[in-house]
């Protein structure tokens, strides 16, 4: 296991698709609406070395705690991601993989991590709520600033153009052609 802490720098360039990582530090949730808001009104935080988490958490707003916070499908953010990387974001966390366009945007600059889909309780257990930005977007779409400790991740797309999802998809197509049904 590789240990990393935020803000992230050039160390992400050493990561390879398939590496397992424990991430500590500050991350920011951002789904579709948050991306659009950031593109319009700017970042409510310093994007240099930042980590975006594709997640719409369940937050107990009375006690100020994250109740459940697994990843959402990253592909919805495909068309909105390149400007984030241009602004200095060093990594994304999500599930399901992203497009070739995102793979190119990451090249030489940033990585895409996968956090196991559905593991909301595990995520919440390593998180501490710090702040909420753009609360008017609602609970699922707001930008939640979260401190994490040892969040277990896998590198899905590295900064050298290797994409685990693309590798698997290629092998799945080969295996499908050999199926006898």
């Amino acid at each position: 296991m590789i240990r990393l802490s935020t803000p992230l720098g050039a160390e992400v360039l050493d990561l390879r698709a398939g590496d397992r990582v424990l991430l500590s530090g500050t991350i920011y949730t951002a789904r579709d609406e948050a991306h659009l808001k950031i593109l319009e009104d700017g970042f409510p935080f310093d994007p240099a070395g930042a980590v975006l988490y594709h997640c719409g958490p369940v937050v107990d707003t009375e006690r100020n705690v994250i109740v459940a916070a697994g990843p959402t499908t990253s592909a919805r953010m495909n068309g909105l991601t390149a400007p984030m990387i241009d602004a200095g974001v060093r990594s994304l966390i999500g599930k399901g993989g992203m497009s070739a366009e995102v793979r190119e945007a990451l090249s030489g600059r940033a990585v895409y991590f996968v956090f196991t889909g559905g593991c909301a309780a595990l995520a919440a257990s390593c998180m501490e709520l710090v702040d909420c930005h753009y609360p008017e977007l609602g609970m699922a779409e707001a930008v939640w600033e979260i401190r994490v400790r040892d969040m277990p991740l896998v590198v899905g797309i590295d900064a050298h153009g290797r994409d685990l999802f693309e590798d698997v998809a290629r092998s799945v197509r080969e295996r499908y052609d050999q199926l006898r049904l």
Binding site: C55, V58, F115, G117, G118, C119, A120, A121, S125, P152
Partner: peptide, 24 residues
């Protein structure tokens, strides 16, 4: 590793009495 996370998550949800997945 993914399975380990899934099983760990099941234990955490039960212990903390919180939803297994945030998409309830």
């Amino acid at each position: 590793g993914e399975f380990a996370n899934i099983l760990d998550n099941l234990l955490k949800a039960r212990d903390l009495r919180v939803p297994i997945c945030q998409d309830t």
